[in-house]
Nucleic acid binder design. Structure first.
Lengths: 243, 243
DNA sequence: CCAAAAGTGTTATGCTTACACCCATGC
DNA sequence: GCATGGGTGTAAGCATAACACTTTTGG
């Protein structure tokens, strides 16, 4: 209380210990036909040797989002990635050592961005590794709950945002787009219905329809892989924005 | 960084100053045909005399939600109220004095609960007052943005949750329910379409329909006010739950 | 019988779901 | 011509949106 009174505030601030504030970043990607999350193996107690979501302390003059970006970059070397605040967890005993409040974020990185990037072994981790969301190891602290929450949020946003565009390469076929949705939702989707919803519509003369609700743009290019009919390629009209 | 290394952690924690953590609680109610929010007038600098969202420091062993409940009770005397975490704001300069990270919540209190409750003048506030969301004073810090965010969230949840039940009395007519929706959305709704969506459906013999999607239960009671046709009264089958 | 709010139905449009076969390509 | 993934249409059911008059009550 008494944030509103500077005198009382000084009082409070000197008398009462402050909690530590960390950011933890749930980093998702799609890889090998699977939804994966980046975890680090803890080098020290508590939970030594146990896998955990990467994260760390917020610096005193650092924005929360900036701290999340920094953590992400430390682990993956990546910048300019989609990040969204998830939730703030602050149960007093979530860290057995001391009071730690963690502001969680989730990041979506496309296979494109990841290509050629090395995962970095940071000083506080024995190892860094991608895990399937559908086959997770035991996790430190309340991190299982955080992953759960992140997955729910990701799924929830799938069908009313462009969020999947952050995981896809710039250009993709409708089958690939559908596959990404299926991997995230973890269930099969009907091909014709999916296309009906996603595909751009054209007027009779082939010109782009004015009030087309589709988020996609047909590039005109085709992709040939293997020995079958080539697929048309699409792009998202707009990339999703951070919340 | 280095949260994972206890030695490095001690280092960090002693070397680096920690931010203060507060909770701010956006308290909504519906009153006099209007959506209102509870604000306090600051007694001290900065922003002395300016209106602000009630809030205060999180105690070192106190859960975030518990801190929000405490703030709420300090201002309104109310317990057992719907509270939901909104967002965490942590720009380094959002408080000119020092680094303050605020975890925001929103609370929904029904006119029923409020009846007979006194607003309390706390030590750090000159005054406490309900303001119309549609006619707000200037606000301290980034509080205008927080209110904005809270309103967006409330509106977004209106049509896929039972959240409005937290603002209503136990029993209400369809007209009242519609009025609450209109007040929150700040636009008129079609009466027949609204009822089609909300009203319970019955089989031909008048028995309650098995797969009725309506969230409402007809109580059988009627309410007579004034000199016109009495309205049927309804209840929500389930109350909404905290996120 | 008047004032006031409660209550009520239809049509058009568009989204959702379920479902099975033909097409284009390289070899 | 075959293997492989790309590509297509229709019908039923359901939600949405627009729109105006009748019913019930107390005084």
């Amino acid at each position: 209380m008494t944030k509103e009174n500077p005198q009382a505030e000084k009082h409070d601030l000197s008398r009462y210990p402050r909690p530590s504030v960390t950011v933890d970043v749930v980093i998702f990607t799609i890889m090998a036909d699977d939804l994966r999350v980046l975890l680090v193996q803890r080098k020290a107690e508590p939970f030594r040797g146990v896998w955990a979501i990467p994260g760390g302390f917020v610096h005193i003059d650092e924005d929360l989002l900036a701290a999340a970006r920094r953590e992400l970059e430390e682990e993956t070397g990546l910048r300019g990635v989609y990040l969204e605040q998830l939730y703030t967890f602050g149960e007093p005993d979530r860290d057995p050592r001391s009071r730690v409040i963690t502001v969680t974020y989730f990041a979506l990185v496309s296979t494109d961005l990841l290509r050629g990037q090395q995962l970095r072994a940071t000083t506080d981790a024995q190892a860094v590794q991608w895990f399937s969301m559908y086959d997770l190891p035991d996790l430190a602290f309340d991190h299982a709950r955080i992953l759960d929450y992140a997955l729910t949020r990701l799924r929830g946003k799938l069908d009313y945002t462009n969020i999947v565009s952050e995981l896809l390469p710039e250009e993709f076929s409708l089958s690939e787009l559908q596959r990404y949705h299926e991997i995230i939702l973890h269930r099969p989707l009907d091909k014709r219905n999916f296309r009906k919803k996603m595909e751009p519509r054209y007027a009779r003369d082939g010109s782009p329809l004015a009030n087309d609700p589709s988020p996609l743009l047909e590039t005109g290019k085709k992709r040939m892989i293997g020995t079958h009919r080539p697929a048309r390629l699409f792009r998202y009209k707009d990339k999703s924005r951070v919340d």
